[in-house]
């Protein structure tokens, strides 16, 4: 039987210490004499700045951050802050094939809008930024409250003893920067202060954001990164067609008229929209979609209207002066005529 420990015979020999080369010895000696450098003068005057014990992108959260709820809350808050235009739909038991078909048709329609915008030479094509997303109705209202009612930049800053300031000769304890969620200096959406604001709002019935009656049942959001009536129009034509926004014809888009897509669209109900923080119903949302040319078009309309008003005002003001002028002129001519007549009569009498 071979030995279990496989040792080569040279390993079994006792090792004889060898004489080290002389140049290595010299190097050791030079290292031994080296001194540590003196600390910089700043370090001896000021205390070292505090180090946050968490990454700057992950401040400690009030609720456990590993829960899916917390992450969804954060995601919804960021979605609400980054999308000025969103449509709210109810979906009644759609099948996955129907979802696939609807998403495909929506993406195709938005791509077409983007292509036409690019052909016009306009840079605002962002059709791939329009997202169709099913939301959890428990988390979304809370995130909406945080976004609507929690404004940390308006709250007064907590007084901070800056330890690096040499003027503060104090031995007071410095608030610790460990990952403690009850630190009042944390102002992100998952912080304790944000949570308390949302909770207080739940108890306060007067403060409303307007979407409360819609936030129940199975909901899906269509979010837009900017307010673009052209993209909105394309979305309406696919998801909620009516007379104003006709659905694509069967010849132009046969995929849209597949039974899976059509049966899915019948089960989607448009409830409302949120545009720049304001709540619109279906009619209001359709009105936003019907604005020709988007914001630029609205500005052009406003300018034209203001120009018209200006012309009207100058006409009105001028007319007062003109009428006065004509009256005075008329009166002057009458008086002159009378004077002439009198002058004509006087010599005859005299």
């Amino acid at each position: 039987m071979p030995p279990r420990l496989r040792l080569r015979p040279e390993h079994l020999r006792t090792r004889i210490p060898q004489q080290r080369p002389s140049h290595q010895q010299c190097r050791y000696a030079s290292l031994a004499t080296a001194t540590t450098p003196a600390p910089p003068i700043e370090q001896t005057i000021h205390s070292s700045p505090l180090i946050a014990r968490y990454p700057p992108t992950q401040p400690p959260s009030y609720k456990p951050p590993e829960f899916r709820k917390s992450q969804l809350h954060r995601q919804y808050a960021s979605l609400l802050r980054s999308s000025p235009l969103m449509l709210l739909f109810q979906h009644n038991n759609l099948r996955s094939v129907e979802w696939v078909g609807i998403r495909r048709e929506l993406a195709a329609a938005l791509r077409k809008v983007d292509e036409s915008l690019a052909a016009d030479g306009r840079p605002d094509y962002f059709g791939d930024g329009v997202k169709l997303q099913i939301i959890q109705k428990g988390i979304f209202p809370s995130a909406l409250k945080v976004v609507e009612f929690y404004h940390p930049e308006q709250q007064p800053q907590a007084p901070v003893h800056h330890p690096t300031d040499p003027a503060t000769a104090t031995s007071a304890t410095i608030p610790d920067t460990l990952a403690a969620s009850d630190d009042t200096r944390l102002t992100h959406g998952l912080s304790r202060t944000a949570h308390e604001v949302a909770e207080a709002n739940r108890r306060n019935k007067k403060l409303k954001h307007g979407l409360e009656p819609l936030l129940s049942g199975p909901l899906v959001l269509v979010t837009f990164p900017t307010v673009s009536p052209r993209h909105l129009k394309a979305v309406f034509e696919i998801l909620a067609p009516n007379k104003e926004f006709p659905a694509p014809k069967r010849k132009a888009n046969p995929g849209y008229h597949e039974p899976a897509v059509q049966s899915g669209l019948q089960k989607l109900m448009m409830l409302g929209a949120r545009v720049e923080g304001k709540v619109f119903d279906m009619e209001g949302a359709r009105w936003v979609g019907s604005i020709e040319g988007g914001l630029d078009g609205l500005r052009a309309q406003l300018v034209a209207m203001l120009q018209g008003v200006g012309a009207g005002i100058t006409n009105t003001l001028e007319s007062a002066g003109k009428s006065l002028y004509f009256t005075m002129e008329g009166r002057r001519s009458i008086l002159e005529d009378e004077q002439k007549a009198q002058a004509g009569e006087a010599p005859k009498e005299g």
Binding site: Q90, N92, N93, L94, P213, L214, S216, G217, G272, D281
Partner: peptide, 19 residues
């Protein structure tokens, strides 16, 4: 749908119907 009471009931009923 903006009526918190009747709109919610109607929408819940429609969501209960099968696919």
């Amino acid at each position: 749908p903006f009526n918190a009471r009747s709109g919610k009931t109607a929408r819940s009923f429609l969501a209960l119907l099968p696919p």
